[in-house]
Simulated scan of single mutants.
Amino acid sequence: MVIGASSGLGRCIGVGLAKKGARVALLARRLERLEAAAQEAGENAVALKCDITDDASVRTAIDSAAEKLGGIDSLVYTPAIGPLVRLVDTDADTWRKIFDTNVIGAALATAAAVPHLTASGGKVVYLSSDAGTYGPPWPGLGAYGVSKSALERLTESWRAEHPDVGFTCLVVGECSGGVGDGQTGMTDGWDAELATMAYPLWVSRGCMPGKLMPVEDLVEVVRTILSTNSATSMPMVIARGAPEGAATLPK
């Protein structure tokens, strides 16, 4: 089950896993885009509408996914928003929107899926970012980075309470590839002037090291994590571009 599968990396991962033979439930809020993704993915995929900011919607969608798939072996949580805004200008509403999507939605989805995952000895993968605790803070993306740090702590907390389920926080570097709805919309709505000012700071602080990682490699990293036994899953995996391709390192 892939949540956030109507666009961006979530779409790439959901469609990619289905094309590699997995039976996949694609969940997201935008049903029309989701159905297009399911059509591209083929007969192994089903589309289910889900608003991750609404507890009832999450539980209904996940129960439906379990019914259609005959259970749930894994959950991949990909939704995230990252407004480009200085901390001094980040208002309460923006903070709430970021945490609703990046952290609270992940917690709600996991809570709804845990009974199914416990029954299957399943896995959960949360997509995180270099902007979290793994890398240096990104000026202009402070609130986003804080939310990703919280997501990493959430991963550890779920592992502590449910050791029979495998929980992994997948820290993703810059990705290349993905066309149409598969393109990442992270920069949508960013202020161009602020982005121009922030970019040199990101480079000078080492926020953008390495090469771009092809999305095909990212899909393979996710598939590898999901194929391991839940008892041997790592709390954190780093996936970023390198001359040899994708690299994964436990932390």
Rank of each mutant, 00 (worst) to 15 (best):
S7H: 12
G8Y: 10
G8L: 09
G10F: 04
I13L: 06
K19Q: 14
K20E: 12
R23V: 03
V24R: 03
L31R: 14
R33E: 10
E40R: 12
A41P: 10
A41L: 10
N44R: 15
A47N: 08
K49R: 15
C50L: 13
I52C: 08
D54S: 12
D55S: 14
V58T: 11
A61R: 07
A61C: 09
D63L: 03
D63I: 00
A66N: 02
G71T: 10
D73Q: 12
V76P: 08
V76C: 08
G82R: 02
V85A: 12
D91Q: 01
D91I: 02
A92E: 13
W95D: 00
D100K: 07
D100Q: 13
D100W: 07
N102R: 05
I104K: 09
A106Y: 07
A107R: 12
L108I: 13
L108N: 07
A109F: 06
A112Q: 04
A113K: 03
H116I: 02
G122L: 07
T133C: 02
Y134D: 12
P136A: 11
P137R: 03
P139L: 07
V146S: 10
S147W: 01
L151E: 09
R159L: 09
R159W: 03
D164C: 09
V165M: 05
G166F: 08
V172Y: 07
V172L: 04
E174Y: 11
V179N: 12
G180S: 09
G182P: 05
G182M: 06
Q183M: 14
A192E: 15
A192G: 02
A198E: 11
L201N: 02
S204Q: 14
R205P: 00
G210Q: 02
K211D: 14
K211P: 09
L212I: 00
V215Q: 14
D217F: 05
D217E: 14
V221K: 01
I225G: 03
L226Q: 06
S227A: 15
N229V: 01
S230C: 14
S233E: 11
M236R: 15
R240K: 14
P243V: 06
E244W: 11
G245N: 10
A247N: 12
A247V: 15
